[in-house]
Design a binder for these strands. Structure first.
Length: 559
RNA sequence: GGGCGUGUGGCCAAGUCUGGAUAUGGCGACAGCCUCCUAAGCUGUAAAUCGGGGGUUCGAAUCCCCUCACGCCCGCCA
């Protein structure tokens, strides 16, 4: 598919090279809307061409020859304006056809690991940032033509699961706190929390847990089995929470399977003779600068870095690109995986998206301390809030319809509020913000889609006939402006791969323009251009559906 | 102490990579808009010396140096 702005950009660049010289760097930028679609400031050419920038700008305007748009001089700047008819026709037609914003297959596999939360407790809002970023990024890569697989690494051999297992074995239901939700992750986590608290003050408990860890590491089948079983139960809770957010994984890889099938030992033995590694009383470590990362204990049992290295070696065998979504606390760990793979000459090297933590009233969320907001609770509150909003403004809907929309709007709000922030920025969770359904929020965006749907529904005729409408006669600012913003979607997709918040910001901007269009341009009551406006509405609706889908958010027909 | 990240109106964010033409939105506040395709919307007003200081440049929120605040990491935990 050819996208209007990308074609125009290509034309501008090649024309500027023809005029200014082949080897010159073109600082093409996007100016504020009223100036044009692209701009080139001419200051930089000044020293090379030995002319004042104004003069260069007027030279460019005189010599350049564009077929897809026009050019204007503004002092030392040259502004480029795309042809309205071209962008209208190209964009509206392609959006109605569908797959606008999708690129041809690139024949590359990408393996995206996300979520990978410890299976000892339900997901809280802090953990949830990971799958929301990961799933959105996966959806973006699909649009870019990649063969995407998402994977959840299940850490079923860690200390957290050991504590949980000890608790389940040694505690009575009467010893633990109330379960908030009848869901396996919630039901089990109270044992984890109690055991974890007991461990802090009781050395006997600590020893008991240590013993379980030893048994698990020596391969005691019963203990390994109960670790796996408990992890699976908690994991099933994670999976159902995530499903509600429209997030699924293509595969799950458990840490224990890597130990059992010998992959961890293989990785350790491959690393042992290499110069990056050293021995500390029998414990193997990797060292650089003044860092040491231990791969095994003195007794030879493996540590988390070794297991994760083995995991990534395995990933390298089955994909072309490795991408992990990780909390910022894993930065050093990520570096050690890279170092190890480099030393083992394994490729591809993994890429990472790091995100900052979600805090609650200024303090980091944590399961152990109980200072956290469960994802399940947030989802339920969001749905409840959405239900209230619907009941306030609609009396004509059946209870099922209310539930359906409340679910779509609530889950959308949860995802949107997290994805709209740049990953490396910290988020301080606040209920009033999380449940804000105005302005920069999912409901704002969904509502624009519902309004478009409503127009088409009231019109009532077959949208097939709009496919042949030529919208290029429309010339007003609001109409063309809306379509121009729509036309930028493919570029936004390209930029959003590791910055998914850009997609969310774009969705808000586009929705806002549609809301203005809705106010300024009656469609069904239009004296003229009715079909053309209907074509815009239909193309907008189809595009917004895809944008929301890229964000993993439902696009309700009414709300 | 060292490394990485963040700091933009009362609050929350975009822009920082790739320096340009009056710093962009939202929430909140205030003032308006529903005989008109759903007001979860729209319009307007007030509100920012872009943490601070130096530097580079014709030009700095953006690049460099210093500095302050906050977060994360620097375990034979994961």
């Amino acid at each position: 598919m050819k996208y209007a702005f990308m074609e125009f950009e290509k034309e501008i660049k090649s024309e500027l090279k023809r005029v200014l010289g082949d080897d010159i760097e073109i600082p093409l930028e996007i100016p504020s809307e009223e100036r044009g679609d692209y701009a080139v400031p001419c200051f930089v050419f000044s020293s090379r061409l030995k002319k004042p920038p104004q003069e260069i700008a007027s030279d460019i305007v005189a010599k350049i020859d564009l077929s897809l748009g026009t050019v204007e001089q503004a002092g030392p700047y040259v502004n480029f304006i795309i042809d309205d008819e071209y962008v209208l026709k190209n964009t509206v037609d392609s959006c109605i056809e569908g797959r606008f914003g999708w690129f041809d297959p690139v024949d590359e596999k990408i393996l995206i690991e996300h979520t990978s939360a410890n299976p000892n407790a339900p997901l809280h809002v802090g953990n949830a940032r990971n799958p929301i970023i990961g799933d959105t990024v996966a959806r973006i890569f699909k649009r870019l033509g990649y063969d995407v697989t998402t994977e959840y690494y299940v850490d079923d051999m860690g200390r957290q699961v050991a504590i949980l297992t000890w608790g389940l074995k040694n505690l009575d239901p009467s010893d633990v706190g109330d379960v908030e939700l009848e869901k396996p992750d919630h039901e089990l986590s109270v044992y984890y929390q109690r055991a974890s608290a007991m461990m802090e003050e009781d050395e006997g408990v600590q020893e008991g847990i240590q013993e379980i860890i030893q048994q698990m590491e020596s391969g005691d089948e019963g203990v390994v089995g109960s670790f796996q079983e408990n992890s699976r139960k908690v994991l099933s809770g994670h999976i159902s929470s995530l499903e509600r957010l429209n997030i699924t994984h293509d595969s799950y890889k458990s840490e224990s399977s890597l130990v059992i099938d010998g992959k961890v030992r293989e990785a350790v033995e491959a690393l042992r003779p290499l110069s990056v590694c050293g021995d500390d009383e029998g414990a193997l470590y990797m060292g650089w600068d003044d860092h040491r990362v231990y791969l095994t204990r003195s007794d030879g049992t493996s540590l988390y870095p070794a297991r994760d290295i083995a995991y990534h070696m395995g990933k390298a065998d089955r994909t072309d690109i490795i991408l992990d979504v990780l909390g910022e606390d894993h930065k050093m760990h990520a570096l050690s995986i890279r170092k190890a793979m480099e030393a083992l000459k394994a490729s591809p090297a993994p890429d990472f998206i790091f995100y900052s933590f979600v805090s609650l009233e200024g303090e980091k969320m944590s399961t152990r301390s109980g200072r956290s907001v469960w994802l399940d609770g947030l989802m339920e509150s969001a749905k409840e809030r959405a239900r209230e909003e619907i009941l306030q403004r609609r009396e004509d809907l059946t209870p099922d319809e209310v539930e359906d929309i409340a679910e779509k709007v609530g889950m959308g709000a949860v995802r949107f509020n997290i994805i709209k922030v740049q990953p490396e920025k910290p988020i301080d969770f606040r209920w009033d913000e999380a449940l804000n359904f105005q302005g920069s929020s999912a409901p704002f965006v969904q509502y624009s889609h519902a309004r478009a749907a409503s127009i088409l529904r009231r019109w009532g005729e077959d949208t097939e006939q709009l496919k042949t409408v030529d919208p290029s006669s429309l010339g007003s600012k609001g109409e063309v402006g809306l379509v121009k913003t729509m036309a930028k979607y493919p570029m936004v997709i390209q930029e959003s791969t590791t910055s998914p918040h850009l997609l969310a910001n774009y969705a808000v901007k586009l929705a806002a323009e549609f809301h203005q269009f809705y106010r300024d341009y009656p469609v069904l009551k239009a004296e003229e251009n009715k079909k053309e406006r209907l074509a815009i509405v239909l193309s907008f609706k189809k595009l917004m559906e895809d944008i929301l889908d890229a964000l993993g958010i439902a696009a309700p027909e009414y709300m």
